[in-house]
Measured scan of single mutants.
Amino acid sequence: NCLEGLIFVITGVLESIERDEAKSLIERYGGKVTGNVSKKTNYLVMGRDSGQSKSDKAAALGTKIIDEDGLLNLI
């Protein structure tokens, strides 16, 4: 459970895995996936064609922004 207690938001199109697979992977390792960035969000996983508003909010809140490889490296 290397992601225990961590909260993730996924945005954009992921290249190597589907969004549902990424969500399942995060949950399997103890993390939680939500739909919107908040002060409780630990990581924003940004894929291709992701919206600017979520990354702006993450930056404003100090949320770590990672890509798909960054997510896989956490596991």
Score class of each variant (00 low, 15 high):
L72P: 02
D20P: 10
L61P: 08
L14S: 04
F8Q: 00
N73M: 06
S16E: 09
L72R: 12
K39N: 09
L6M: 13
E18H: 11
L6S: 07
K39H: 14
E27F: 01
I17G: 06
G51A: 15
L61C: 07
L14C: 05
T41H: 00
I17C: 11
G62M: 02
D20W: 08
V33I: 05
K64D: 06
I66F: 04
E18P: 15
V9K: 03
C2E: 03
A60H: 08
V13W: 11
N73H: 08
F8V: 01
G5Q: 02
A60E: 11
S16F: 08
G51H: 15
E21P: 03
V45S: 01
K23H: 07
I17K: 11
D20K: 12
L25T: 05
I10V: 13
V13G: 11
K40T: 12
A22S: 02
G5I: 01
I17F: 15
I17P: 07
K40H: 10
S24I: 12
G62V: 01
S53M: 11
R19S: 09
G70D: 09
I26D: 01
T11D: 15
V9A: 12
E15Q: 12
R28F: 08
A59F: 13
D67Y: 04
L44G: 01
D20C: 09
L25E: 01
N42D: 10
T63E: 01
A58P: 05
M46H: 04
D20M: 09
D67N: 13
K64E: 09
G12Y: 01
I17D: 04
T63N: 01
T11W: 09
L71M: 06
A22V: 13
I26V: 05
L44W: 07
A59T: 12
A22N: 00
V45L: 09
L3A: 00
G62I: 02
G31M: 00
N1V: 05
L72G: 04
D49W: 07
A58Q: 05
S24Y: 10
D56I: 13
L61I: 06
L74H: 05
E4D: 08
V9N: 04
T11V: 08
E27P: 00
L25G: 00
